[in-house]
Amino acid sequence: MTTSELQLQLNNLDASLFNHTPFYCEENVYFLCKKLCSSQIADAQGSDLFVVFISNDNKQIPLWHQKASHRADGVILWDYHVICVQRKKDGGTHLVWDLDSSLPFPCPLAAMCQKLSGHHFSSFRSFRGEVNFSFLLLMFFRVVYAPLFLRHFASDRRHMKDSEGNWTAQPPPYEPIVAEDGSVHNLNEYMEIRAADVLTDLPPELTSAVFGQKHGVVIGEAHLEELFSQIP
C-alpha cells in the first residue's frame, strides 16, 4: 500500500468498523490493535502501536470529547481509560485511536494533548462539588508496547460485576481474552497507576524499557509527546 493510499484510507475510516462495547475500553483497544495490523494500517506485528492506560491514584480522571458524556463540553469522569497511539516514523504525525472520543478518528497526538491541557482549568468550577479537587489535574499514562500487550493481556471481566455477581454493564458477545501463557485476568496490573510509579524525567534507557517491560512505563501528561518523539 502506497503512502497516498494509506492516507486516503485513514481519511475515510469510520469508528463503527471496529469492535466497540461501551465501558470495555481495554478490550476495544485490544481488538483495534489487531485490526489495524491485519488491515495494513499499522505494521503487521504492531511494532508501531502502543496501548496507553490513563488513570491516577484516586481513579478519577476527566476526559473531554467523550461520546458517553451528557455534557455540552463532552467531559466525563472515568476511573481509567485506554487508547491506542500509533507512532509515525520519519517525522510523521503520531495518531491517537480512541473509539470513545468524538474527536476525529484517528486524531493527531499533538491535537489531543493540546485539547486535554486547554480544558483542564475551564471545567474546574463545574466539577468542584463532584470530585476530589486536589486530584483533578493528575493524569498519568502507562505506555505499553502493543506486541507485548497482545501477548500478555487477559481479562475475565470480573471488574464489571457487582458484589452479587451481576454485570454493571453488558459484556461483549465474544469470549473473554486469555493471555498466551494461560492467564485469565491481569487487567488490574495495567490499570493500577500511582504517582509513585511516574517517571519525573525521560532517561536515555527509557526506550528499551518501553519495548522490554510487560507493563510498559508510567509517565505524566507533560512527557507524553516527548516520549513518542524519542522512540525510534
Rank of each mutant, 00 (worst) to 15 (best):
P173A: 09
H120M: 13
Q170E: 14
T168Y: 06
E221K: 10
I177N: 03
A179P: 06
F140V: 07
D181K: 03
Q114L: 11
N28Y: 11
Y145L: 08
V218T: 10
L138N: 15
C107L: 10
V52E: 01
T21G: 09
L77A: 11
G91M: 05
I231M: 15
H215F: 14
Y174D: 13
T3V: 06
F23D: 08
L95E: 01
F141A: 00
K34C: 04
Q9A: 14
G46A: 04
H81N: 11
D48C: 03
T2V: 05
V131Y: 11
S122L: 08
S4G: 06
G182R: 08
S155N: 09
A196R: 08
T200R: 11
C33W: 03
E225M: 02
C107A: 04
D73F: 02
L136F: 15
L199N: 04
D100A: 14
F53P: 00
D100G: 01
L36G: 00
L202W: 06
D156E: 05
V184D: 07
N186T: 10
I231S: 05
V144Q: 05
E164L: 09
N28A: 06
D156R: 02
F53I: 07
A111K: 06
D201C: 05
E130M: 13
E164R: 11
S47P: 00
S39Y: 08
P173R: 12
I193A: 02
P106D: 06
L148K: 02
L138F: 13
R128K: 12
Q9M: 13
L6S: 04
Y30C: 04
A196Y: 02
V143H: 01
F153L: 07
A209W: 12
I177L: 06
K161H: 12
Q230N: 12
V210S: 02
V210F: 05
T21S: 13
Y80H: 15
V210W: 01
D181Y: 03
V210E: 00
T168C: 09
M191A: 14
Q60T: 08
T21R: 14
E205G: 03
G212C: 13
I83L: 08
N19L: 09
C84V: 09
L136P: 00
S4E: 14
H119Q: 11
Q9W: 02
R157D: 12
N166E: 13
S123V: 11
K115F: 01
L49Y: 06
K214C: 13
